[in-house]
Simulated scan of single mutants.
Amino acid sequence: MRSMTPIPGDPWPHDMIITVDDRPHALLELLWVREAHGLVPVDDALPPLLVDRPAEAERPVGAQTRDHWAEVWPRIWDKAVAHAATEPDRTLFDRALDPTMGPDERETLLGQLVGPTARDEFGDDVFDDAAYREWERRGSDAHLATNRTTLADSPEHGDVATLADAWRRGLGKVVTLPCRGVYVRQIGPRALLVTDAVRNDAATYRTALESFRRSSSQRPSTA
């Protein structure tokens, strides 16, 4: 989101760039694993349950594996969230197109682009599950159905003044989760993690933007 040149009467600063990731794939996969496999990870910074609760995994794991997954889930979540807070390195995309690159180097490069994922810890097979495919389909359909056709319709244009203030304090990215209720967490020095419910409610989104600070030490707020 950016205006290339100043537009008279437009409150959006022409040099303000805000990235919105409203379908963070790596985070969605982790949320599905947590709920479809009945994990109960312990950490007061974790997000609420999903709005669209998935069915129980059709390929369940044993109790011992499930307990281990629940123990390591917060660590993997934090790493994936930290990566979601960053902006992609465009030079990595360019390098990935190099036809002379060897397979090992390409795999390392792709890992840097994608960042930590659920598959690193739980394996690819965990997503070879009809329950995951159905939940993923519903999520994609819902995302397309609610996708705004113009930038002017976006929540960011609903209160440009508050957004611009947050941008001047360092905000550059907003990541959203399809989880229940109000959840706001600053992730890194330039990003904010919120639920869709927060972003879609003007007053709550304004409060979330006002909460953004240059320090990344804030814990999430929930309601």
Rank of each mutant, 00 (worst) to 15 (best):
A63F: 06
R90F: 07
L49K: 07
E105V: 02
V61L: 06
P189D: 03
G38C: 04
G123W: 02
R59W: 00
L28I: 02
P220Y: 00
R168W: 04
A130H: 08
R34A: 03
P99C: 04
S211W: 03
W32T: 02
A80N: 06
Y132D: 13
M101D: 02
S154G: 09
P8N: 06
A36S: 11
A85D: 05
V160E: 07
R2L: 14
I187C: 15
G115Y: 12
L144H: 08
R90C: 03
P74S: 11
V126I: 15
E136V: 10
G139N: 10
V194H: 04
L177V: 09
T162V: 13
E58V: 12
L193C: 09
L30M: 06
A57C: 13
T176Q: 09
T5Y: 13
R148D: 12
M1S: 09
T19H: 08
L151R: 14
V175E: 02
R214Q: 13
P116W: 05
L171N: 04
P41Y: 05
R206Q: 15
S3A: 09
R66T: 00
D44G: 01
V51Q: 10
R75V: 04
H25I: 05
V81H: 01
V198D: 01
V42L: 05
A131K: 08
H14Q: 08
V182A: 07
E35M: 02
S3W: 03
G139L: 03
F212P: 00
V160A: 13
